[in-house]
Amino acid sequence: MVTGGSRGIGKAIALRLARDGFAVAIGYAGSQDRADNTVDEIKATGGRAIAVKGNVAEPGDVTALFSAAQETFGRIDAVVSNAGEMELAPIREDSLAVFDRMMDTNVRGTFLVLAKAAEMLPHGGRIVALSSSVIAKATPGYGPYIASKSAVEGLVHVLANELRGRKVTVNAVAPGPVGTELFLKGKTEEQISMLANMAPLQRLGEPNDIANAVAFLLGTDGGWVNSQVVRVNGGFA
């Protein structure tokens, strides 16, 4: 299962996991056309996929997503909590609405997805939540976003301990700057170039860079990695 799987990093994760042999349940909140296109791409290569619309911050929608995956595929082996929002705002009282939106999707939504995953995953399941490498930069304007992603990392560490005895791994992947529609929105060419050159590898990440790390954590080779934050950022931080 991949929440926020209809575009950007989430879509790349869904497509990579399908290539690895997973049947994929895609959760989405926006465009049905985008979600259907992702499902069609997976099916075109012989994979299995469904798309389920819902808001990860609503318990009923999260339950419906998990139920649809369970009913369609018979079981749920791995969950990727990717759905999120990013808005820039300074730490001021008039930024409270932005802060609330970020906490609603990024923290409440992740909490609900992780909670349902903990309830439904079998012995040996895998959970990955998406964080952000910007946490280490403390960049002005990112206060609400950094607060929300710091909370995500805290939830990952705690849940890994709460699932002791079930051989379920819980990890986070923290991307650096990735050239997605969400990241590029509102930025000038100069800003994009500056961000690309901050990493020693001197480029923006690509969605597949992040998908590859998630696939490792969900695959056989990632079985001994637990309660970790994997910073996939080209050396950005």
Rank of each mutant, 00 (worst) to 15 (best):
G74K: 09
V107N: 07
G125E: 11
N106W: 10
S132L: 12
R101T: 11
R108K: 15
E119F: 06
N106D: 15
V128K: 05
L130A: 09
E87N: 12
S133L: 01
I91R: 01
A78G: 02
L112M: 09
D104Q: 13
P122Y: 08
G74T: 06
G84C: 07
M102P: 00
T110M: 02
E119S: 13
R101E: 10
E93N: 03
K116Y: 02
K116V: 04
E93P: 00
G141L: 11
M120I: 13
K137Y: 04
A138K: 13
E85N: 07
P122D: 10
Q70F: 09
R92P: 00
V134H: 07
F73K: 12
A129P: 01
T139H: 14
V113F: 07
G124C: 13
G124T: 10
R126W: 01
N82L: 11
I127Q: 08
V113E: 06
V113N: 03
A117R: 03
I135N: 11
A118N: 05
E93Q: 04
R101Q: 11
D94T: 07
L88H: 03
A118H: 05
S132I: 13
H123P: 01
A129I: 09
M86C: 14
R92L: 09
L121W: 01
M103T: 07
F111N: 08
L114H: 04
S131F: 01
F73E: 13
S131W: 00
M103V: 08
A118W: 04
V113R: 09
A129S: 14
L96I: 05
S81W: 04
S95F: 00
A118Y: 03
I135H: 09
N82W: 05
S132H: 11
F111K: 07
A138G: 11
I76C: 12
E93R: 11
V113G: 04
N82S: 15
V80L: 06
T110S: 03
F99Y: 14
M102V: 03
H123V: 10
F99N: 05
D94Q: 12
